[in-house]
Simulated assay, not measured.
Amino acid sequence: MDQGQRLLHSSSFGAAAAAYAEHRPDYAQDAVCWALEPAPGPRVLDLGAGTGKLTATLVALGVDVIAVEPDLAMLAQLRRTLPTVRALPGSAEAIPLRDGSVDAVLAGNAMHWFDMAVAGPEIARVLAPGGTLAGLWNVMDDGVEWVAGLARVGGSAAIGPRDTPAGWRAETADAHLPKSAGTARFGSPEQAGFPHGQRRTAASLVATIATRAGILVMPEQEQEATLGRMRAFLVSRPETAHGEFTLPMLTAVLRVRRL
């Protein structure tokens, strides 16, 4: 994806901020704890915080969290949902915090949108020595046959390579993390996955997928056709046709420590 496409996709979420807040999953607490494990202190930046899905998990864990989000509609939704959290406009490429002010920088389903050539030095600037940078992604387990079928029906715009465990490992291994940023150096990246099944119906799963950037940027007719195919597939399957079911999902984490 070139820079223009990345900008188009990353800026698509604001128009769907309310649906994003309603339908997107949160993050497994075990995954967030693992992401924070090497951090030297409790000050955490949620970077590209969106509507606050990861922020809420951090709040529940009792850490001192600051949220930074570039899209004003998403930021407004976060502030409505979590009014006690300090939430600031800003981006990974221009973080509105002072040098060395946080012990960890976490990004939930956002790090792949960062221009790391610019964001790497900015993250290193605000991250205290010994601090942790971690990206978290919620991915569907396509080792389950009906999930693999849904991915085939929806196509890569709906469920892309990074949205499944094996694809995520290949797509993110060493791809989104800085090795150095100015005088700062980072260690070797680590990956881990944590079960995070979600209760869904056919309708609510389609509504969740409708908040993905690949769907949001589609022409309306193509979007409706894609979501319609996925809905028809789900209501045709015995696992998903009758009321609630568990969507097999993992919270996948990529972390690195600033040396």
Rank of each mutant, 00 (worst) to 15 (best):
M1F: 08
D2L: 07
G4A: 14
R6W: 00
R6I: 11
L8W: 03
S10I: 00
S12G: 11
S12Y: 06
G14A: 08
A15D: 06
A21W: 00
E22K: 15
H23S: 08
R24C: 03
D26Q: 10
Y27N: 03
Q29C: 03
D30C: 00
C33G: 03
L36R: 11
G41A: 13
P42F: 00
P42E: 12
L45F: 09
D46N: 12
G48K: 02
T51Q: 10
K53G: 13
K53L: 15
T57Y: 00
L61P: 10
V63E: 03
V63Q: 02
D64S: 15
D64Q: 15
V65E: 07
I66C: 15
A67Q: 08
V68T: 07
V68D: 08
D71S: 12
L72N: 09
L75D: 03
L75Q: 08
Q77L: 04
L78H: 12
R86G: 02
R86N: 11
R86D: 07
A92Q: 04
E93M: 11
E93W: 05
I95N: 09
I95W: 07
P96T: 06
L97F: 12
R98S: 14
S101F: 04
V102R: 10
D103R: 04
D103M: 04
D103C: 08
A107N: 02
N109C: 13
W113A: 14
W113I: 09
W113F: 14
M116W: 13
V118Y: 01
V118T: 15
R125T: 11
L127Y: 07
G130V: 03
G131K: 05
T132P: 09
W137R: 05
N138G: 11
M140P: 00
D142Q: 06
G143W: 00
W146K: 10
V147M: 12
L150F: 11
A151T: 02
V153R: 10
G154I: 07
G155P: 05
G155K: 08
A158R: 02
I159E: 03
I159P: 05
P161L: 05
P161N: 07
P165D: 11
P165S: 14
R169Y: 03
R169Q: 14
T172C: 13
H176Q: 13
K179E: 04
T183M: 11
R185G: 11
G187T: 07
H196I: 04
R199Q: 15
R200S: 01
A207I: 02
A207W: 04
T211D: 12
T211W: 10
G214V: 05
M218I: 01
M218P: 02
M218S: 09
Q221W: 00
Q223V: 00
E224Q: 15
M230H: 04
A232H: 10
F233M: 09
V235M: 09
E239I: 01
T240W: 08
H242Q: 13
M249R: 03
A252F: 01
L259M: 08
